[in-house]
Design a protein around this nucleic acid. Structure first.
Lengths: 188, 188, 188, 188
DNA sequence: ACTTAAGCGAGACGGTACGTCCCGTCTTAAG
DNA sequence: CTTAAGACGGGACGTACCGTCTCGCTTAAGT
């Protein structure tokens, strides 16, 4: 059994307050106007409490992201049995989310975090909800004959995410039908 | 004739010194360790001279980028006559450039700038050298029958750029043959 | 005849504009919030025009002072024949002027100028209107027997000025009758 | 009992370092070449530490003055029993101090501070060492018959201080015997 | 129960950089 | 040769946060 060291245990309420405040301020002001000092003040927490448990601002945001506190939408791809349809639906939802003006800044901030924080970068796909899809559905679809053997699904998904990011960075709304067109091309 | 307003003209030497220093420090230390104060000191220029002509750090970097001072490689796609080959060559060069460890950070910094600065975001493709390709070769290739009419080449190129960005953010080197495979899929 | 050197003559209108603006801003904002740049802008004059003709801010203010543009009151002592009465009247006017809240700051600013600028310091008494009194009336009064021979009138006047300065610096209004009392003591 | 608020206590060593440095730089360079930045650097202290505890440069100097760090001489008037003698001695010391060329600038700087900072102005007399004299010796001397009842000693002292200030501002050394002459006149 | 170690809110501290103001000098075009 | 305009290198301003530290208090395990 794990030896609990002496002293007061970590305060869960402080942890929650910090993460909630971080998520709120991130959405409100963007990553680069986020300050540890501001979070501490707003969360009613001492700065030291933040520094004790998180190494950096980006790690703090990463934890928010991985706990699903940053992206308000449900980005898990559906499972209709038809993987092309599912991907299209998911990609389309992603396009529509990022094209909403109030979300563009949030996603761009997220891109900054991914660029600054390695673990956020590495888990970009998980953050956008396609991990299960990759690990569980690929085999099934291949076995069912939906996809030819050797389909680089990971590569396909990354490319779709890339398309979304480019639209976000270019501040250009996705063309109608773009989701379907892209999926059709990548999974012929 | 243009009326030159009175007073001393803008110092071109100061402008050059600032841009060169910015590019050097950007490559050396990354965007977020870049400071106006540091640039001014290193360039032998007063801070006010920077603030007089550039609104923000990102605008400064943007100007460097658009003047070709940031990306050392020659990213202009070749013109062999075969647009698929040309795209593959260009994309492969891009992959190889970003996969080099000393360049990954630079490109991630560039992504941050694109996220912070609208004009950099909007001109992502130009920055990566594919503007001409889009504006001049698309028509020619279509006329020659290389591409079916209605090929959304802009969309294709954006998707390729997106694939590069995702690899950069995920810190994953591109798989061998990825460039060729992607181009083949997107321009069947 | 004086050799006029070639080229444009000094612009009298610029000189006037500068001095008027200086006096206005000095009274309005105090000496330490006075800036050459602000004067130039407000006077519609180039900074260089100021620097060409005045060595420093304090010299500029000095010129205002010596031209009587700073102190709005008429501080010249009267000449009733009775030197004690005249001094009392003058000192009383000085006390009343400096005790007015809107003038206190102005006089304190003037003290600062006197402390910074040697020529203003040296001509403190002239600025406060007692030069003639010292140079012309002393002899007359002595001859008339109003003052005993050897009366150190310069010393007396300086002491009176000193009393005023101390009240100004202490932000204490002068006691009623202080002028008369002081003059009586110093010129028994 | 005094409620000590939480958080680290104010650092006394930082406070001392700041005041000592301020006094040193003030004496060395004068009030207007004194900069917060320079003090902070020289004292090995962060600028914010200064701004946290002092509102302005003049307040900083004021604290130095009230702690006796600015004026190196012992300006306390003696107590020989004869108040006229004591005043003369004190005034003479003051004249001699201010007439020394290395001290003139210091005292003129002090005048500037008195003009800028209300509390320094109000406590001019205390700063120059005559507070006790006023509060304790006046009554005693009056009782002993040394001074006629109703002697406005405060006014007398202010006038003496004023005489000193005028000499300082005029850059004129005091005439020999001036101290004795003035005291004799003011306290006949 | 007492000690001891850790967590916590608060906040002072040495620093770095910010963006602004103003300095005094220099450059340009007009008169 | 003066002037208005204004760019320039420089220095200081006062502010915002950084990440570390110290304080007095609370909490909980070990003795």
């Amino acid at each position: 059994m794990a030896e609990r060291r002496r002293g007061a245990a970590r305060s869960e309420s402080a942890r929650i307050a910090v993460l909630e405040t971080t998520a709120a301020l991130f959405a409100e002001r963007g990553y680069d106007h986020l300050t540890i000092e501001g979070i501490a003040a707003e969360a009613g927490v001492a700065k030291q409490t933040i520094y004790r448990w998180w190494k950096s601002k980006s790690e703090l945001v990463a934890e928010c992201l991985f706990e699903g506190r940053l992206l308000p939408v449900d980005l898990v791809p559906p499972d209709s049995g038809d993987i092309r349809n599912d991907l299209t639906t998911w990609l389309d939802a992603l396009f529509r989310f990022t094209d909403a003006p109030e979300n563009g800044g949030l996603v761009r901030s997220l891109v900054i975090v991914a660029a600054e924080n390695e673990s956020v970068g590495r888990q970009l796909d998980a953050s956008l909800g396609v991990s299960t899809l990759l690990t569980t559905r690929l085999g099934a679809a291949t076995k069912a004959g939906d996809l030819p053997a050797g389909t680089p699904l990971k590569e396909v998904v990354d490319t779709l995410i890339g398309a979304v990011l480019v639209h976000v960075l270019q501040r250009t709304p996705a063309a109608p039908g773009a989701a379907k067109r892209l999926v059709s091309l990548l999974l012929p």
